[in-house]
């Protein structure tokens, strides 16, 4: 177990700069998930922590020790790759035991440790099989086993679940989370799937174009997104964004004053974000009025796409008695559920 800290970490490939000064403190035993769109630099960051990529600038330390110039094997980390990378010519037992080659312990103890890890991943009966005889999920478990067996200070995962089907993915998600609760090792997990991030993380790091956008608990990034990017990236369906303008002591959207906002210059552009979950189709007079263009029944509720004065928003309606297509409806939102963003995209608090 160990803390990990990134200080002003940068990475450039030749002239192309892909990371622009990351700062992050990861606590001992914390489960941190890096999430962001493709190409934002998640893998690069992880690989730099692992020592597979050189650091262009800044500092990485693990357990308080600067590791910039340490070989991967001397960093006390283990990594699980997206495509598993378990050795096809070795049995599961050999694969798992591979990480113990350098460990100075008696052979019997190694065997015992392999059995232990195998049992923890419910792979006991497969220990003598070759990877070709395993399913995708089992292979992934072998890869995790190989990482676990050494009892490293930090686990690094690079999109380990993206090759699994949806059902297996949610099952493995749970297993990795349980594993973390049991071994309590610091975990850094990379994914581009925000559901994975929300469900597993103690803290989420949201990245875009080589910059950290926000670091926070799942609740924080969901309820208090730091900027428009985070607001849209986290949560499905995506947050509605409406263009408004500061007027008086509030914000006016589609001709209606809907929120209070202080400290915003009169007449400045303000973006109002409302999660579809917070925007309800009601009978009574609400904040907006609009016509329903599309209905998406989801069972317990129905998503209604509503056109309000030329801007389309997604709202939540009852699943049993959905409104009719083309109907003109009222939409209501509680004031505390409004997210306001300034012209620079940053949240106004």
């Amino acid at each position: 177990m160990a803390t990990v800290s990134l200080r002003n970490l940068t990475k450039a490939y030749g002239k192309t700069r892909v990371l622009h000064g990351l700062n992050l403190e990861i606590g001992d035993g914390e489960f941190v998930v890096f999430v962001g769109p493709s190409g934002c630099g998640k893998s690069t960051t992880l690989r730099m922590i692992a020592g597979l990529e050189e650091v262009s600038g800044g500092e990485i330390s693990i357990g308080g020790q600067v590791v910039n110039h340490l070989e991967p094997k001397d960093r006390d980390i283990a990594m699980v790759f997206q495509n598993y990378a378990i050795y096809p010519h070795m049995t599961v037992r050999k694969n798992i035991g591979f990480g113990l080659r350098r460990a100075k312990m008696p052979k019997a103890d190694k065997e015992k440790r392999i059995e232990e890890v195998g049992a923890m991943l419910s792979m006991t009966e497969y220990l003598d099989r070759k990877p070709a005889q395993l399913s995708g999920g089992q292979r992934q478990r072998v890869a995790i086993g190989r990482a676990m067996v050494r009892d490293p200070a930090v686990f690094l995962f690079d999109e380990p679940l993206s090759n699994l089907d949806a059902q297996l993915r949610s099952q493995m998600r749970l297993e990795i989370k349980k594993l973390h609760q049991r071994v309590n090792t610091t975990i850094i997990f990379v994914t581009h799937d925000q559901v994975e991030a929300m469900t597993m993380a103690d803290r989420i790091v949201i990245m875009k174009d080589g910059h950290i956008q926000q670091v926070g608990t799942p609740a924080e990034v969901f309820h208090k997104p730091a900027n428009i990017f985070v607001a849209q990236f986290i949560g499905a369906p995506s947050m509605n964004l409406l263009e408004g303008r500061a007027k008086g002591q509030g914000v006016e959207v589609a001709g209606r004053k809907i929120a209070r906002a202080t400290g915003v210059a009169e007449g400045a552009a303000v973006t109002v974000g409302i999660r579809p979950d917070d925007l309800l189709v009601t009978e009574e007079a609400g904040s907006f009025e609009g016509r329903i263009t599309v209905l998406e029944p989801l069972g317990s509720e129905t998503l209604a796409y509503v056109d309000i004065g030329g801007q389309e928003v997604v709202a939540r309606a009852d699943g049993r008695n959905p409104p009719a297509l083309g109907a003109v409806v009222q939409l209501s939102v509680a004031p505390e559920n409004l997210h306001l963003f300034g012209a620079d995209g940053k949240a106004i608090r």
């Binding site: 692992a50 020592g51 597979l52 070989e71 991967p72 094997k73 980390i77 283990a78 990594m79 790759f81 997206q82 495509n83 990378a85 378990i86 050795y87 591979f98 990480g99 080659r101 350098r102 190989r146 050494r150």
Partner: peptide
């Protein structure tokens, strides 16, 4: 990935 995994495993 195979080679990197091995590198991390200390070969």
């Amino acid at each position: 990935d195979f080679l990197e995994a091995a590198r991390i495993d200390g070969l």
